[in-house]
Structure formats: C-alpha cells, structure tokens
Design a protein around this nucleic acid. Structure first.
Lengths: 160, 160
DNA sequence: GTCATTTAGATATAGAGTATAACCAAATCG
DNA sequence: CGATTTGGTTATACTCTATATCTAAATGAC
C-alpha cells in the first residue's frame, strides 16, 4: 500500500482532554523545576520530602510516605539521600522504639528555604501568562481533580 | 535525640506551587484513564498514538514522534504494539523508500472511537466539579504553561 | 554525477521512577 | 499471653523515557 504523508500533524482529538494537555504542561514543569533544583542537588521528590520534613519536624517515615503518596519502601532510599547530603537526621522516636523521627538539620532548613525560592521563581516563569487570580483558580481546579481521583475504583495511589 | 511525631502532617509550603498539585492531579488522572483504557488493551501512550494516527492517516513515524514529543527510538516498539493488536498498518511511503506511512485499520478506527468515548467519560468523572467554562479555562491555562516551557534553557523535550 | 551530510527507521541499552512481596522487630489488641 | 498490626527495611521487577549507535536512503554542494 502506498500512502503520502500529511504535511501538518494535528492532535485535535486529544486536546479535548484535560489529561493530555496536563501531561504536556507537567512535562514542561518537570524539566524546568528539575533544572531549578539541580544546584541544590535536589530532585523533585527529595525537595518535596525535605519541604514536608521542615514543615513537620519529627514526623515518622510512614507519615512522610502517606503525605507524599509514596510507597513506604521507596521512602528509605529517599530519606537516606537527604541524610547523606546532611539535610535531615534520623532521630529515634521517644514513644515508639521501632519508629524514626525525621528532623531537618540547620543546613536542611536553609537549603529548603533557598530551594523553595528557586522553585517559586520557576513557578513564576511557568505561570507568567496567568493573572494571579487565574493562577489561584488553576491550583484550585487541580485540587478538585486530585479529590475526584480519591473516590474512584482501584484508588490508584502512588506518586510524590 | 528524642522527638515526638506530629499528629497532623501538612504540605502547605508545596501547595503554593502549581506543579506540586498538578503532579498529584495528574496521578489521579493517570490511574483512572489507565483503568478506562484497559478493556481496549491500550496504554496512555498507545492511545495517544492511535488517536494521532487516525487523525492523520499516512503520517510517518518521525512525525508521530514529533507530535507526541516521544524520542524516535521509543516510537518503534509503540507502533509495533499497535500493529500487533491489528489497529495500525505500516505501509511503505510512496515518496521515500526509507519511510513508513502509518495507516489505521478499520479495527483501529473503531477501537479509537470507542476508546475515545471511554476516555471522555473518564475526563468527565475527573472534572465533574468544574463548570464547562472552568474546564475550558483549565485547558487553556495548561496550554499556556506548556508554551511557557517551550522557550526555556535546555528545552526539556520528552513525553507523550 | 559524486561525495558529504542529513533524515527515517531500528537496535541495544541504561537510568529514572515506582510497585510488589517478604522480612524483622516492636507495638497493640483480644 | 498469643495473634495481629505497624514501622522500617531489603530485594526485586516493571514501566517510562533517554542516549548512543547503526543502516539505508534522500538531499545538497560542487
């Protein structure tokens, strides 16, 4: 069979779906935020984890896993990475001898603050075309989608 | 060091960023759309590819790769999967003996239509909380973020 | 027309990211 | 107390995506 190729390729049908454009938008975000975090030797996940640890000092690993929707086995290497970089310490819990309390170091608190500023700059770049109210509305809409996923069949929980 | 764990874990700081909530929203979407596509033996990527092939019959593999921001090597197995399922045919290009023209089969066109309906239902589930104008605005905002990523440093291109 | 360069498709491979199963030790509960 | 659950861990595997390299054919310079 012989067929000539079209010159202009479209993705019209897919564009009707929020998920398709969201994936493309998120890819752009990921590329940019990854670059923004590189100077701090942080990845997206480790930055998220550090941020939650700084905001909730003393939390347990399982709580961190729950908060970021990460499976517990994957938390171990992640936290170890933060410990290795001197950003977080694994303290023993005073109430449960099995548990660890994650505490940020001074360096961790400082790095988190500076990384957060870098990510904020990144975020401004990516949403530069949006008014500040539009940006707020966007986040609210995303939250409502996140919530919509919570009540569905297999409860596909994962991520960070 | 002994530290008691906080009872309620927050992610306030991360919530200021569109990217964080977008990742969580997209995870929810992915879980649901993956389930929606399972009956058709399609994955997100293969569905996207099939949709573009149906919409642009005769396109070359490299055009498909460009359209979906997939690296060319990854297109090969992807298209083969569609061929194996009888949804697409690799036709020889009439103008370039190196090139392939991707053409949907009748089954491919039909499956694409039914899968598109299933994905549309999924999309409605996920955006149920949004008014139809809000949903349109959401997609426009996501497009603007996607565009914002196009003009940046390393031009982090990837995805599907 | 011939040679250098580019393009289309393909192969092999590697690295993230994330998921599952199974294990030990301590806590909890009947 | 014994059974069950929970916190952390290890090992492992699967998906997704990226990079390097190869060939055959097309294009472009002269």
């Amino acid at each position: 069979m012989m067929v000539a190729a079209p010159t202009r390729i479209t993705d019209q049908s897919l564009r009707q779906f929020a998920g398709y454009t969201m994936k493309r938008a998120f890819n752009a975000i990921r590329a940019d935020v990854t670059a923004a975090l590189a100077p701090f030797e942080l990845r997206m996940v480790t930055f998220s984890a550090l941020s939650v640890i700084v905001e909730n000092p003393g939390l347990r690993q399982s709580q961190l896993a729950d908060a970021l929707l990460i499976e517990r086995p994957n938390i171990v290497a992640l936290v170890d990475e933060l410990v290795r970089h001197g950003l977080v310490e694994k303290a023993k819990s005073s109430t449960d001898r099995r548990a660890l309390s994650l505490v940020p170091t001074l360096l961790g608190v400082d790095s988190c603050a500076r990384a957060t500023a870098a990510v904020a700059a990144h975020d401004r770049r990516m949403t530069a075309a949006l008014s500040s109210t539009a940006r707020t509305e966007l986040i609210e809409m995303l939250k409502s989608i996140e919530r919509a996923g919570e009540g569905l069949q297999n409860d596909g929980v994962t991520t960070a």
